[in-house]
Design a protein around this nucleic acid. Structure first.
Lengths: 357, 357
DNA sequence: TTGTATGCGTTATCAC
DNA sequence: GTGATAACGCATACAA
């Protein structure tokens, strides 16, 4: 009864106006909950809402956006969705956006700069009101930030520390993470600890390394530089695996002694485990290994990987809230503050680390 | 020089018309490459394009869609993006769409039925012209298909065999996959082969089992039903891991002998490996294990998992092409043929299976 | 081959 | 408190 069969003829605001006996303007004001609706009689509102409901009225997004110049959307530009790192962040973004009137428009750049710029253009054309960029560690600052900067668009980057004017960023506290990682191994009795650092040009990598060094300094622990290696700069989110395997192999063959390894991230740790296996060794029996990130597969490998967890969903939420703040103070500065937001990492205990026998 | 500074005043079609000296309609016809543009003088076209370019003209999507009743978008509704299974399919979809004028609008239902329906509504409101649903094996047919059916919308489902009118589907040939899996183990010399089937209510699961049985029948191989188990129906893409671990444990304790295991999917295989480890055994030394899907982490675990690969990117392309066909024969039936499209699986050799000693 | 006029469904600005 | 009217930017039937 309620739903009319009109499948070809769309129900418009005019229809609602006619049927309810009010003018289109009043109906519009009521149904879109415009500021003016405060002055509309409660009974009128109700009547209008009822008839709208009964007619199955759906406002036309295109007409609405054309007239109001607002899209009620935010662009979510992810640098590479196949990176397991990103998915939980997306979830955080989506959940946070859910309770608002904003719709996320998600684009995946496939870690390709051209695509990134193309999609950025696309999002601008679609008049998104803000932008959340989900970057991973391969996000090459050089080019892409340029593209972002001179758009006049509130932007928050999550997963990468971009120190640019008017672009906010949300990342994990990498320094604390590095500290916690080595502390864990130290507390298990390990003293000869190898490290596979991330690429040097990467700020995340350097921060983690700082944390490691700080702990070592505090404890008077000597880090043997013969067992500190560095991943090459890479172009693929899975290259950490290859790199980790390769460097671990070198480490094993170098005959320098170590009983534990801090890996740059979980993939690197998985690579290390693979390399160990090739030499007929295993974690944690022959070497304790700790990762970073806590991507989903860290829990699924055998042994499960002890790791430093990035609160990814939370990072997504934080970035979104940051953006929403700006959007709500509509037509204030229209710019996100440049602050860097650091979220705390945490230790996740699994089976790849154990007390030194 | 080229880009005008007008940041507040948008460049419209009228501006282009004025500057180029042609009428708005001619400009529109040319720039939107409407059918009529065939009759426009080449020189006119060029002049118009030039001035459009020089003014930095960007058509307004909203105005355009409002008037033309077309959105140039297709909805991509993924059942759960955190399922690693989905991501490559998405890539296939996106790549295929790239060369067209269609833009994908991606929504993630978080394997939640309510959300699925909500987003479906949303996509309808946004006037998507077609729909691609990326389902995984948890996609519950009962409810969700209902929601899809009575929308008047060309739809293709990938990853799940839905036998509904006017909904196309693209999946891997599960029967062939099951056949290939057990054949591989058989050829390695295994005869006592355990199987962990998927949930019984799942058609994928039954198909794979059929393939296994067909091979067994052909070879006169006896499948010992004491070592055939079945995963419980589940609500989480990662539950296959727990289930696999649990059932493998039972299998090991049942004291029935087996030298190899066909797991329902890669996660199940990972669970099995975990269970083996708990009993101080390992693959492939004590038991060869083969998975299904070839999700990214299959290559990263140690041992790497030998598996039956679903051509996921290809499945995404196939689904997209299927949809595009319908969209292009604009206002034909407007319905996707109900055909089921089966893509061939393939064997991926890694380290979790080996010749029986 | 090109120009004119009209309307898509909504919201904003006024007037009442 | 509510209603008339004019845009928003574009595409299309029709006239020329």
């Amino acid at each position: 009864m309620a739903a009319p069969k009109s499948k070809s003829t769309r129900v418009t605001l005019i229809d609602v106006a006619r049927k309810s006996g009010f003018s289109p303007s009043t109906v519009s004001i009521v149904l879109s909950e415009a500021p003016l609706s405060r002055y509309v009689a409660a009974k009128t509102k109700e009547r209008i809402r009822k008839t709208a409901q009964s007619l199955g009225y759906r406002p036309d997004v295109f007409a609405r956006s054309l007239r109001s110049r607002r899209s009620h959307t935010v662009g979510v530009l992810v640098f590479d969705i196949s990176d397991p790192f990103c998915v939980l962040i997306l979830r955080g973004i989506e959940k946070t956006l859910q309770s608002t009137s904003y719709l996320p428009i998600l684009m995946d750049a496939h870690h390709d700069r051209k695509q990134f710029e193309g999609y950025l253009e696309l999002l601008m054309e679609r008049r998104v009101e803000g932008l959340i960029v989900v970057a991973n560690w391969l996000f090459d600052e050089g080019g892409l930030l340029e593209a972002l900067k001179n758009k006049h668009m509130p932007t928050v980057v999550v997963g990468r520390d971009v120190s640019e004017k008017h672009i906010g960023s949300v990342i994990v506290d990498n320094e604390a993470g590095g500290y916690i990682a080595i502390k864990h191994l130290y507390e298990l009795g390990h003293r000869r600890i190898a490290v596979i650092r991330g690429p040097r040009m990467l700020s995340d990598s350097n921060r983690r390394w700082s944390g490691i060094q700080r702990f070592a300094a505090e404890q008077g622990l000597q880090l043997d530089e013969r067992v500190v290696r560095e991943l090459p700069g890479a172009i693929d989110p899975f290259s950490g695996f290859e790199g980790g395997a390769q460097l671990t192999e070198e480490l094993l063959q170098s005959r320098s002694k170590f009983t534990a390894l801090v890996a740059f991230d979980d993939l690197t740790a998985l690579g290390a485990i693979r390399a160990l296996a090739r030499e007929d060794r295993s974690a944690p029996r022959d070497c304790s290994i700790i990762g970073f990130d806590d991507v989903p597969l860290a829990a699924l490998s055998t042994p499960g990987i002890t790791t430093i967890r990035q609160p990814m969903e939370q990072m997504g939420s934080a970035a979104t809230n940051r953006l929403l703040e700006v959007l709500r103070e509509s037509s204030g500065s229209g710019q996100v503050s440049t602050d860097l937001e650091l979220l705390p990492p945490s230790l996740v205990l699994r089976d790849s680390t154990s007390r030194l026998a």
